[in-house]
Simulated scan of single mutants.
Amino acid sequence: MKLTEFVIKEAILPTLKATSKEAVIREMVASLKASGTISAEHEEAVIAAILKREELGSTGIGNGVAVPHTKHASVEKLSATVAISQAGVDFASLDGEDVFILFMVVSPPDRPGDHLRGLENISRHLRSPDFCKFLRQSSNTVDIWDLLVERDESERES
């Protein structure tokens, strides 16, 4: 599974404006809505589902990264977006550090395998210090998308 198969290019947020955990989640879900991935009628329900998941334990996995996620019947397929915060956000991360890179994943409840494969794919890439460094340096959607394409291609070659 490639990043570019489920990250919605039109939903990428290269300069996140939000500065709190809930506001970040709202801004990212709004970007998925604006891209047509999530309907306006389901926006608040998806936000609530992600916030509920965060109550179980922060998806701030450390090293300046968070991967908020949920399963929701309003999406037809595994969908994700990427957001970059220049200032950093307190996401109650496992290491106590602010988050700068966020991948949000929303998938249909009847496709748990896709959900897990998507999260695994994202976390595998996020273990690369270079990938994270280049993501943080990206200042626009094209740069972020090109980086995702490059990662997909390098994975295919290995």
Rank of each mutant, 00 (worst) to 15 (best):
P68L: 15
S79D: 05
P108S: 05
V99Q: 01
T81R: 10
A92P: 00
L102Q: 13
V99K: 00
H69S: 06
A87N: 15
L78I: 10
H69V: 11
D90T: 03
S74Q: 08
E97M: 03
V82F: 13
A73V: 02
G88F: 11
A80G: 15
A73R: 13
I84Q: 04
D90C: 04
S85W: 08
H69W: 07
D95C: 05
D98F: 00
H69G: 12
D90I: 02
S85K: 03
T81K: 04
S74M: 12
M104D: 09
T81F: 01
F103S: 05
I84H: 01
T81Q: 08
D90S: 05
A80C: 13
V99R: 08
L102W: 05
A92C: 03
V82W: 08
A80W: 10
V99N: 03
S79A: 15
V99I: 10
S93A: 15
V75D: 12
V89I: 14
V105T: 14
T81N: 10
V75F: 04
L78R: 06
E76S: 14
M104T: 14
D90G: 01
T70C: 15
D90R: 01
S74L: 11
M104C: 10
V75W: 05
P108N: 05
P108C: 07
Q86D: 13
L78N: 02
M104S: 08
E97T: 05
S79P: 03
L102V: 14
H69M: 13
L94H: 00
D95V: 08
E97H: 06
P68G: 14
K71P: 10
V99F: 05
I101F: 01
V89D: 00
E97A: 06
F103A: 00
G88R: 11
G88C: 12
V75I: 12
S107I: 03
D98G: 01
K71R: 15
S93I: 04
T81L: 05
A87R: 15
V89C: 03
A80R: 13
K77I: 02
E97V: 00
F103P: 07
E97C: 01
H72L: 10
F103L: 06
V75L: 12
V75H: 07
L102S: 13
G88E: 13
G88I: 11
I101Y: 02
P68W: 14
S93E: 10
T70Q: 09
V75N: 09
G96L: 12
F91V: 07
L78E: 07
I101C: 04
I101D: 07
S79Y: 08
V99H: 02
H72G: 04
P68T: 14
F100Q: 06
M104G: 00
Q86L: 12
I84N: 08
V99G: 05
A73F: 10
G88Q: 13
V89N: 00
M104I: 09
D98M: 02
A73Y: 03
I101K: 09
T81G: 12
V82S: 13
S107C: 14
G88H: 12
V99L: 05
V105L: 15
S74W: 04
V89A: 00
L102M: 15
E76T: 12
P108W: 10
A80K: 14
V105F: 01
Q86G: 12
K71M: 15
M104R: 01
H69C: 09
L78D: 04
